[in-house]
Design a protein around this nucleic acid. Structure first.
Lengths: 152, 152
DNA sequence: TATTGTTATACTCTATAACTATA
DNA sequence: TATAGTTATAGAGTATAACAATA
């Protein structure tokens, strides 16, 4: 009953607990789950929000480049863009310089929807990051960004 | 051509770039992808390795508790445990104190397989974390662990 | 009543290959 | 040849509901 390695006392993670990949996986899943719960009413998902955010900052960008920025395959972008266009959040017009491509822009509805969601997301992040100071949050983003920069 | 917000120059992420959830998502996906590539030959996956690691540190634990530690539903544990038992890495015997449950332990093959994979995983992590000092890596794990602790 | 393991099932996400029209 | 968008499809991963045996 007092065996320090006994499962009935307090189960341990073993080697897992020292792996950055494991903690990234769990923290990321926590954020994804809470994101979905917080934005439940809006029909917004992490990927869709990412697309809207990028299109706002790069008006006229095509969907291939959006996908490249987010690590989404061209084939999988089609349904996502269709969903946003059908929802009236995104406008898709023939690109002037390349007749194969579409130039993407936010509609007015897309602009306001993006802002509404951003407000919800900021509350959601503040909730999950409540234990970290502002400087620790910047530290975290900085470390993650350096990892991401290693390949992309 | 010199418009600083032009998509053709250097596309930006917009609001996304300030969100911890986004960076967690991308960094986590990078680790998952490289994990899969590094362990490709072994048939090992992140979840399976997690199960083996927990069983080693908690010999005799049942699959429900393993799933609870990893955030995996009971229903989804069945196929995972079957896969590891069929692969000869995990042994499943009737628990002495609860006839509903199975006590899980690593087989000898499971022990050596776990160690082999751990060696590969450590190289994979060292590769992806190459830009971070040892102290920065500890900082990162510490920050992630504090996020995870907020709910579980 | 609650819990362990289980089955069945459905839904999302992701990955690949191949096609078309343009470049 | 290469690229943008598209279709079809298959595989993971994940979520829910329900059941039998046991607690």
């Amino acid at each position: 009953m007092h065996d320090p390695a006994s499962p009935s006392d307090r189960p341990e993670l073993g080697a897992l607990d020292r792996l950055v990949g494991y903690h990234l996986r769990r923290a990321s899943a926590m954020f994804a789950g809470d994101f979905a719960r917080t934005l439940a009413g809006t029909g917004m998902r992490q990927v869709l929000f990412g697309i809207l955010s990028i299109v706002r900052s790069n008006a006229g960008i095509n969907q291939g480049n959006v996908g490249r920025l987010l690590g989404i395959q061209r084939a999988n972008m089609v349904a996502l863009i269709n969903e946003l266009v059908d929802g009236g959040l995104l406008a898709r017009v023939q690109a002037s310089d390349d007749r194969r491509a579409f130039a993407l822009t936010l509609t007015d509805a897309g602009q306001t929807r993006l802002d509404e969601c951003l407000a919800l997301i900021e509350r959601h992040e503040a909730e999950l990051l409540g234990d970290l100071s502002a400087s620790e949050q910047r530290q975290l983003v900085g470390l993650l960004a350096r990892i991401e920069a290693r390949e992309r």
